[in-house]
């Protein structure tokens, strides 16, 4: 399943970049994250509890940041599995300066959902993926503005 979109954060590019590669900041803005441990250079293990439609479950997974090109672009690879199934995805996040010291974020990615959750998740996610991503960026934005 392909997802793509853009979001504008009212903060300068470097500040946004710093947050977007900061594991604690990410963990704080992803729903249901229960732990996030660094296990290597730009590689993290996490566990999160997510409900997709009627199927709720805990996923254990890995997040890897790659092709880091600060403060312009990086790739994120996510892999998680749990009783309801698994999620795998890769995405590219690009940052560009916007007007009035804002940052334009564009993202595109490909997500695969498998296992028992696949049927439900794909239909649900199709509709809500964009909103979830926007929630994430808006949370990051709040972190920056409140600090």
């Amino acid at each position: 399943m392909k997802i793509s979109g853009s979001y504008t954060i009212r903060a300068p590019r470097q500040a946004v970049w710093d947050r977007l590669i900061d594991p604690q900041a990410i963990a704080g803005c992803l729903p249901g994250v229960e732990k996030l441990n660094q296990v290597g250079q730009d590689e993290y293990e996490m566990s999160m509890t997510v409900g997709i439609g009627p199927v709720r479950g805990t996923y254990e997974g890995k997040v890897r940041l790659a092709n880091m090109n600060p403060p312009d672009e990086y790739q994120m690879q996510v892999e998680g599995s749990g009783r309801p199934g698994f999620v795998r995805g890769t995405g590219t996040v690009r940052l560009a300066d916007g007007p009035n010291s804002t940052t334009q974020i564009t993202y595109e990615g490909d997500v695969e959902v498998g296992g028992p959750v696949a049927g439900v998740a794909q239909r649900m996610l199709g509709g809500v993926a964009k909103r979830l991503v926007e929630q994430f960026f808006s949370c990051i934005e709040k972190q920056i503005t409140s600090s």
């Binding site: 399943m1 695969e112 959902v113 296992g115 028992p116 696949a118 049927g119 439900v120 794909q122 239909r123």
Partner: peptide
């Protein structure tokens, strides 16, 4: 099926 080979109609709900 989706393009990754996931059966999307894998229950009697679907």
């Amino acid at each position: 099926y989706d393009e990754n080979g996931q059966l999307l109609t894998a229950t009697l709900m679907d």
